[in-house]
Amino acid sequence: MSYTIRAGDTLYGIALKYNTNVQTLLFLNPTINPFFLVVGDAICVPRRRRPPCPNGFYYTVQSGDTLYSIARRYNVSVREIQNANPSLDPFNLIVGDVLCIPRRQISCPGGRVHTVNERDTLLTLATTYNVSFNALSEANPDVDFDNLRVGQQICIPPFTPSISCPGGRTYIIRRGDTLSSIAENFVVSATEILKLNPTLAPGEFVEGILICLPEEAPV
């Protein structure tokens, strides 16, 4: 790849920046004078090696990118990107460089985390996981589903199938609910709720689950 000489550059400094050595740069650029670099001249440098990225994804620097704009795009801090790319010069991003973008763990109680790929859309996510548009939006209030980004993490809420609730009515468990708090809020006994939901254990009353409540419960 090409690099344009800047004021203050030395061959040694450029070699450090690209994780290489002076000998390699001289081999790639046999006509340059290592003691007299000319500002504005273009030299050939080896493409930077990808940094290890076990808990993130790779991003290729585009024209106009800054570290701040990349951080905002992927909802991480500049410091987190720098920590994941220790050899990165934050003031000299090179188009074509590959960065490791760390992933932030998102909260997704009762559901699963999906990492967006280049083919994902709101429709494909809803179809693949059999969830409604509204359920996806409610589980991801800060996500713009019209502008999904590769590597972005999405919470897929738990599937809530229709249930038969004869003599009662349905209720979707909310964040913070427990069997005892639901019983207290709706003035019914926990035992009565368990009888109406025989397939659920007390510890399985978690956010997003659809349950039956007695008809008289003030939902």
Rank of each mutant, 00 (worst) to 15 (best):
M1K: 14
R6V: 15
G13H: 07
K17Q: 15
V22W: 09
Q23H: 13
L26T: 01
F27T: 14
F27H: 11
T31A: 14
N33P: 06
F35V: 10
L37K: 12
V38P: 01
P46G: 05
R47H: 08
R48Y: 07
C53K: 07
P54R: 03
N55H: 15
D65G: 11
A71H: 03
N75A: 15
P86A: 03
S87R: 09
L88P: 00
F91D: 15
N92W: 09
V98M: 08
L99V: 03
I101D: 03
R104P: 01
C108F: 08
P109A: 14
V116A: 01
T121V: 09
A126E: 10
A126K: 11
N134E: 13
A135H: 03
D144I: 08
Q152T: 13
I156D: 01
P158R: 09
P161G: 15
S162P: 12
I163D: 01
G168Y: 08
G168C: 09
R169D: 03
R174E: 13
R175G: 14
T178P: 06
L179Y: 06
A183D: 02
S189A: 11
T191W: 07
E192P: 00
L196I: 02
N197V: 13
L200A: 02
A201D: 02
V206C: 02
I209E: 05
L210I: 13
L210M: 06
